[in-house]
Nucleic acid binder design. Sequence first.
DNA 1: CGACATCGGATTGAATACAATCGCCGGTAC
DNA 2: GTACCGGCGATTGTATTCAATCCGATGTCG
Lengths: 254, 254
Amino acid sequence: MERFPARPSRPETDAAAPQRVLDAVRHDIIFGVLAPGSRVTEAALAAAYGVSRVPVREALRALEAEGFVESRPYAGSTVAAIPLDDAEDLFAVRGVIEARIARRAARRAAAQFGADAPDAAWWSARRALADILDDGDRAVAADALAELPELNIRFHLGVAELSGSASLAALLRQISGKIEWLYAADVDHRGKQSWGEHRLVLAAIDGGSETEAGRLMAGHVESSQRGYLERFAAPGAASAGPSQVTGTGAGERG
Amino acid sequence: MERFPARPSRPETDAAAPQRVLDAVRHDIIFGVLAPGSRVTEAALAAAYGVSRVPVREALRALEAEGFVESRPYAGSTVAAIPLDDAEDLFAVRGVIEARIARRAARRAAAQFGADAPDAAWWSARRALADILDDGDRAVAADALAELPELNIRFHLGVAELSGSASLAALLRQISGKIEWLYAADVDHRGKQSWGEHRLVLAAIDGGSETEAGRLMAGHVESSQRGYLERFAAPGAASAGPSQVTGTGAGERG
DNA sequence: CGACATCGGATTGAATACAATCGCCGGTAC
DNA sequence: GTACCGGCGATTGTATTCAATCCGATGTCG
C-alpha cells in the first residue's frame, strides 16, 4: 500500500534538535545547574544530548543573543553572570511591554466575547492560561515553588499570545529568560504572593477593560521589582516610586 | 625563518564570516534590496558572499531571532513584512529603553568629567559619537539622506555604550534593526529635523543632568513616533499623548 | 475539462572531516 | 628564582557529504 507512504510523525532527522538543546541549556543556566563563569564546550553538549556539534552551535549562538552566555572567537563560551545590576532596567522595560500586552489582550478579549464566530486559536490560548493558573495554584499549595518560574514565564508568554501582537510577544520572549533567571532567585521569597496576582490580571483581561488590565499588570511587575530589590538590596538606585517603571517621569536630581 | 610562521593578518578561516553575512543581509532587507516576501536561500547567500552554507545558516537564524526573516523547517526563509502595525509598540518600548540609557549615560558622564583617571573606553566611545554627529551633519547638508538610517542607529547604540549598561544596550540592539527599518521608510520625511535633535541629547548627557537627558531623549523618540504616525496614519490606535510612551498612564476607557 | 495522486528537482537539516587558533606546560636563558 | 619562548593538546570554525523533506510539474482518471 504505497498509497500511504508510511509518513512517520517523528522524522529521523530531528529538525527541532537545536531548540531542544537551547531550552535544556537555558534551563540549566536559570536554575543554577550551570554556574556563571562555567565553560560550556560544544563537544560536551553534543555528547550530552546525543546530537552533533552543528545544532549545538546554533543553540549556543541563540543563547549568546539572549545574553546567557558570552562567546569569543576560538575561545569558546562561558555562562554569563546573573544580571543583578541590570535588574532595575529589566523590570522597567518589562513593565512597559507587559502593560501594553495586557491592554491589547483586554481589547481582543472584549472583541472575542462579543463576536459571533469564535477564534479557535484565541480560545486555545485562553484555555492554556487557565490550565497554567491551576497548575501554579497546585504547586503553591504543595509548596513546590521550584515549578513556579517556568509556569510564571508560560503565563506571561500566554498573555502575550492572547494579545495578538507578534512584536510585543517577541520582545517579551527576548527578555523573559532573564526575568525567569531573576524570578528563580527570588521565588522562595515572593513566589506565592506574586502568583496570586496572576488570576486578578487575567480576570481584568477577560473583563475587557484595557485600563484595568494594564494597571494590574504594571502593578504586578512593580511589586515583583520591589520585592526583588528588597531582597537583594540593589546598590546604585534610589527606591523606585510607583511611576518609576517608565524611567522618564520621576527625577532624581536636576 | 620558520620562527615567524608567516602568520597572515587575515586568517583563511574567517571567524567573522557569519557576522558579515548577517550585517549585509540585514542591510539589504532594511533598505529594500530584499523585498518582504522574497525567498532567501542558503545556497544563494553562500555563493554571493563566498562562504559555505554553515555560516549562512547561523546568520539566517540570527535574522530570524531579530524578526527580519521567517523560517519554517525544510521550507526555507522568507523576508518578513515591515512591522507597520507594531510601530506604536516598538516606539513605546524603545522610548523607555532609550530614556533610561540617556539617564545612565548622563550619570556616567558626570562621573567621567569629575574623575581623575579617565576611562579610555568611555572617551573612545564619546569621540566616536562626535564623529557620528559630524558625519550626519555632512550627510544632511549634502542631502544624502540615505546615509542617515545607519548613522542614526550608530548614534543610539553609541549612547547605549556610553551608558555602561550591557543589558540596556542589548535590548536596544535587539530592536534597533526594526527601528532602522522604520526609520529608513521615513527618513525623507523627518530625517533632517530628527537628526538635529541628537546634538541636544548629547549636550544634555555631557552636562550630566539625568533628568534633562532622559527627557530630551524621550522627546526625541516621541517626535519620531509622532512623525512616523503622521506619515503612515497608523490604523488602530488613538493619537498618543505625551505620556503615552509608557502605556500605563493614560486610560482610554474604564 | 478539471481535480487529484504521483513523481522529480530543489532545498533544508544533520553528521562527519579537516584546518586554524588559543591556552597551557615545560624548557631555557639570564 | 624569574621571565620568556616554543611546542602540544584541546577547542573552535568552516567545508564537504549525505539523508530527509517540501514544492511544483506531470500524467491519469472521472
